[in-house]
Design a binder for these strands. Structure first.
Lengths: 208, 208
DNA sequence: TAGCTCATGTAAGCGGTTACATGATTGC
DNA sequence: GCAATCATGTAACCGCTTACATGAGCTA
């Protein structure tokens, strides 16, 4: 039994939130949607059902508050088993994640599209990344104003958040810059005619 | 009928390969594994079954070559419908993809781990990205030696490949640098005691 | 003799998305 | 009057992963 590491799922994201304090499903949803979702995407329906599954596995316990005029509220708390699962997961190295990026796939086949179109889509996409970058920078500025900068704060959870936020900013900047660069490169090459008597095009194969 | 855009799947990656020339399943597998897989990850079993599904949908046709001493080979060719599907997909803007990154999730909860451990894992992860970056740079150098640089080549398919490869290099560099930066930041903060009488930690919430 | 290349498949299961379902309260 | 907030679920579907299955020929 070479104990297989549990696959990463939403589970650990939720355990992490509940490790800080007990929360209701609804509160989890709100916090998730304002922080975790930026680097670990998940939908409402999945979060609710994952919480139930985790309770069934003994990672969480829940109790219901009866309310009138609105649905009952379910409060979740992490168990000892849940904390152990979380720490066990945290305290292991992370493999580099395989990439799945639609924009790169499209760009790889950009030669099948008229140059102007490919350039248009690259610029548009770059613009979106630029906007996200600026949004993240705005959030960073707000957080710094309210809670102090990374080097100033004594709050370790806040500091972790800053680290991740910084990655977001760098990622979006890198992506926006690449889009602009690639669009310019394509433009510079121009709409060269698909030369019928050109040499057999080399297959783009990265490793021999 | 607000014609829903087909979800992006492996399909388009395969159509793109077959748009350049007819290939057998095995050849697709090889080429895929040496180019596309770096930005659109997929497994062998999925590729084989996706090819059959696409044939059933009329995007491809196939014919079998009988071989002795080894299994028969199946040759695929893109159909007119397949080419239309590919061009239709290519000629639409791409939405920014939601992110799902285990390393960021772990870093977000890094405060639940002793500082030295978090630093260790960040450095290790950064090293892996650095290695991938260097691998990509090596591939770029080889390609340039064999086929000419991006600005020198007349081969548009090769040029598209260079664009994507460049993104890979920038991505890996950005990631490696961020890991090193984050590790240094955590180290600089030091292993401060989890201060029991510290103020209630601020929830890290990015948007108000 | 061990491992790589060639060459294809099937089946179970799971993580995740989309859509369906309900409905009072509060604020503009 | 309209939208957002509060507050939970279920069900169908599907893309993808993992594991199972086979087997000859070639090279170190």
């Amino acid at each position: 039994m070479p104990d297989k590491p549990d696959p990463v799922t939403l589970q650990h994201a939720l355990l992490g939130l509940l490790a800080r304090r007990p929360l209701s499903g609804w509160e989890i949803l709100k916090r998730f949607g304002r922080s975790v979702v930026f680097f670990w995407n998940a939908k409402r329906s999945q979060i609710y059902s994952e919480l139930r599954r985790m309770e069934a596995r003994g990672l969480l316990t829940s109790q219901v508050t009866v309310q009138q005029g609105r649905p009952n509220k379910r409060h979740y708390e992490i168990t000892a088993a849940g904390e152990e699962a979380l720490k066990g997961w945290l305290d292991r190295p992370t493999a580099v994640a395989p990439i799945k990026d639609e924009m790169l796939l499209r760009t790889f086949y950009a030669d099948l599209l008229p140059t102007e179109r490919a350039v248009l889509y690259l610029r548009r996409h770059g613009g979106e990344h630029r906007r996200v970058q600026e949004e993240f920078e705005g959030i960073k500025a707000q957080l710094e104003a309210r809670h102090g900068s990374l080097s100033a704060t004594a709050d370790d959870a806040l500091a972790s958040g800053y680290l991740v936020l910084e990655q977001g900013i760098r990622y979006e900047r890198m992506y926006a810059e690449w889009c602009e660069w690639a669009a310019a490169e394509l433009e510079r090459r121009g709409s060269r005619s698909r030369d019928a008597n050109a040499a057999e095009p080399a297959d783009f194969i990265m490793t021999s």
